[in-house]
Design a binder for these strands. Structure first.
Length: 678
RNA sequence: GGGCGAGUAGCUCAAUCGGAUAGAGCAUCAGCCUUCUAAGCUGAGGGUUGUGGGUUCGAUUCCCGCCUCGCCCA
């Protein structure tokens, strides 16, 4: 409702500016006033026009207000302060519209998007940093789907990388295991109820230390590591088979862990298939043809195929049609004929392809530009759909993957450089439209506070103790495992639910505890904007008061309780609202805090748009919190069930109903369930 | 050395394209459960927005210098 009327107001303003002043501004700023007392929309445009028109802002504002006349849905335009124009909504009409509405308008042409998130190396347990990634990604998927987009969810698996190799080295050379004894190990772990990803967590840390432990052996161990990596990349040998078994088992654990938080995937594309199906060869041809890559013949990158970095000035290699060099760049750069030492190496002089190279090929596939596809096998069954995995030879019945119009890669900010290189390569190949729809959904890492690290029993240096946070490290086995955190959260909510609701059945208490735990965790990860480093602390993460998920759930639970006792459903309450004149209850004496709820509720779709535009789910988290806050305020001031004026009671019930509807909707986009009781 | 990001209340974070009195939560203190769930509510204290300039009707926001921290690249 709110954004529709905003658009209407903007159109009317444009018409006025055109006829009054012959002005066609590019953008008209429409703000939300700091207080509802100022109205529902605030327009600072008179300030801007003042200079252009050489008139006092207040005078201009008065002229615009006079010219605006009446606009449907609005009851007044006022000049305030030094020249603001405040617009007031017809509250009664607005409430009726909000009560009747609630659907997000579907787009005329749904976009096919692809979101890649999670992407944990399958050699250890998921930790809190991975949770932030998966929760951000999953929430964004829900937002895109809410806006009517067709979204594929992919979790990229680097199953042939150095991290998997490290665990394989640990299994084969530290533990002395063979293919068959590893299978026995896995059965034993399963029988003991131990998690294979936890086992690998420890082994990975142990192996990493082992490489460095003996200076005399360092070189030999480094070679062993490299040989193992090459054997895995090459495939068709026992080492590769061990890697396949162990990485698949760990991957399955990751999928299970994320499912605890309601996170599901459609496809797990793997590095092994990108290698074995020779995606790179296809990409390499294109890159050479279009001159994106050039062969370096001198300098430190001699013998490599390299690519100019984004924003850098080309001063070596083949020609490339493109933007002319800007003069200031040409001057500031070293204009000598020497090689571009800053160029990004894509193929090393020994012929191996870098990570960025393989990523370019993969992203060509994502946009349907590679000319080759994966084969697919079933991997995991969710209640409502199947998650597929890439394979060299597939099985029938799989959906079509790839060929997206827009892609979002949820990858932490440390990888912004390689991500920028991939985008630059696409642009260089002439795929400018695809490059423009490639979003590096960047976010900052989750680190541990020194206090948290000490709490977990890690050694913390003097230096680290003074820092606000310490980076987690899988290599060091330093971090908070995702399942441990979820277990801990559920234990905390469970004991609280048990003491509050001894009358409920065990299964019911369990379900409530789980919903609250997941709500707390997901909200915790979503309340920070993406470029804020989260310094993780159990005290904050295990908090259920204040700006937390449970606070929002609690507001919903209160509305549920009201409707249970009132003996009607929220839908009935919303329908009833149409039969009354709401306006008298939405302003003036005795209306405090009611309109605020309606206005906030009306803004949900506006927030959905903003979140998608900015790729920032935190705005919706904040919005839902504020709606819950507005409701709590309303709840305290107006006692619904004992209200004697029947019309007013209908309005109060509708207020609770609209709160419930918008909160549940927002929460579902955040991946949070609202329980019946808590 | 180059690039990116950050610095806001005791702590953790917001602040939409440059707008009205810089807002929340936590913590502290003082209150509110025989009335719809107190995982809640009310109130109080708490700010030179790192620092120095500039741009203008107006700067946490934009520009320049400096300081501190983090990450990435060589």
């Amino acid at each position: 409702m709110y954004s529709e009327l905003q658009k209407k107001l903007e159109e009317r303003l444009r018409a006025v500016l055109r006829s009054q002043y012959q002005i066609e501004p590019e953008k008209i700023v429409i703000e939300q006033p700091p207080e509802v007392a100022f109205g529902e929309y605030a327009l600072p445009l008179a300030f801007e026009l003042a200079r252009k028109l050489r008139k006092a802002p207040r005078k201009i504002a008065e002229e615009i207000v006079a010219a605006l006349g009446s606009v449907e849905g609005f009851i007044a335009f006022e000049v305030a302060g030094a020249g603001y124009i405040n617009a007031r909504l017809d509250r009664g009409l607005a409430a009726h519209t909000v009560a009747a509405g609630g659907e997000v308008p579907a787009p005329e042409q749904p976009i096919h998007s692809l979101v890649e998130h999670t992407s944990i190396n399958p050699n250890k347990a998921a930790h809190v940093g991975h949770l932030r990634n998966a929760i951000l990604g999953d929430t964004f998927v829900r937002l895109l789907r809410a806006a009517g987009q067709k979204v594929d969810v992919q979790n990229y698996i680097d199953n042939t990388g150095v991290q998997v190799a490290d665990v394989v080295v640990g299994l084969m050379h530290l533990e002395g295991l063979t293919l068959s004894s590893i299978e026995a190990l896995m059965q034993r772990l399963a029988a003991e109820g131990r998690r294979i990803d936890y086992y690998c967590w420890d082994l990975y840390a142990k192996t990493s230390q082992w490489y460095e432990a003996d200076p005399a052996q360092k070189e030999a161990r480094r070679k062993l590591r490299l040989d193992t990596l090459h054997a895995i990349e090459h495939g068709g040998n026992e080492t590769a088979e061990i890697a396949e078994i162990i990485s698949t088992a760990v991957l399955r654990r990751h999928v299970e862990t994320m499912l605890r938080l309601g996170i599901e995937y459609d496809l797990l594309p793997r590095e092994s298939e990108i290698l074995h199906l020779h995606f790179w060869d296809m990409a390499f041809e294109q890159l050479k043809d279009k001159g994106v890559l050039y062969f370096e013949t001198e300098g430190k990158n001699k013998g490599c195929w390299v690519m100019t970095r984004p924003g850098a000035v080309r001063n070596s290699g083949t020609d490339r049609t493109g933007e002319p060099l800007r003069e200031e760049n040409a001057e500031s750069s070293d204009a000598s004929d020497g090689p571009d030492e800053d160029a990004k190496v894509i193929v090393r002089s020994n012929g191996t392809v870098t990570y960025v190279g393989k990523d370019i090929a993969y992203h060509l596939w994502k946009f349907g530009l590679l000319g080759r596809d994966f084969a697919y096998r079933r991997f995991f069954d969710y209640p409502n759909h199947t998650c597929w995995i890439s394979a060299a030879t597939g099985e029938p019945g799989h959906p079509h993957f790839g060929g997206a119009q827009a892609i979002y890669n949820v990858i932490d900010s440390r990888q912004s450089d390689p991500q920028a290189n991939v985008i630059e390569a696409l642009r260089g190949l002439g795929y400018t439209d695809q490059a423009a729809h490639y979003t590096h959904f960047s976010y900052e890492m989750v680190a541990l506070t020194p206090r948290c690290a000490l709490e977990l029993g890690y050694e913390v240096s003097e230096e680290d103790r003074a820092r606000p946070y310490i980076e987690v490290s899988g290599r060091k086995g330093f971090g908070v495992k995702a399942d441990d955190l979820i277990d801990k959260l559920i234990a905390a909510t469970r004991s609280e639910v048990d003491s509050r609701h001894p009358e409920l059945a065990t299964a019911e208490r369990e379900a409530i505890a789980k919903a609250i735990a997941v709500g707390a965790l997901r909200y915790f990860m979503l309340r920070y904007t993406r470029n804020t480093v989260i310094a993780f602390d159990f005290k904050d993460a295990l908090s259920f008061e204040g700006e937390t998920g449970p606070y929002l759930q609690y507001a919903v639970v209160r509305t549920r309780s009201i409707f249970r006792k009132a003996g009607i459903t929220p839908d009935e309450a919303l329908a009833d609202a149409a039969s009354i004149d709401a306006a008298p209850y939405l302003s003036g004496e005795g209306s405090e805090g009611i309109w605020e709820v309606w206005l906030r509720a009306a803004k949900t779709t506006l927030l959905l748009d903003q979140c998608i535009q900015t790729a920032e789910p935190a705005y919706l988290a904040k919005h839902a919190f504020q709606l819950a806050q507005d409701f709590s305020n309303f709840y305290r001031r107006h006692h619904i069930l004992t209200e004697e004026d029947p019309a007013r009671k209908k309005l109060l019930l509708a207020t609770a109903a609209v709160t419930q509807r918008e909160l549940i909707r927002s929460l579902s986009w955040l991946g949070i369930d609202a329980p019946e009781a808590m």
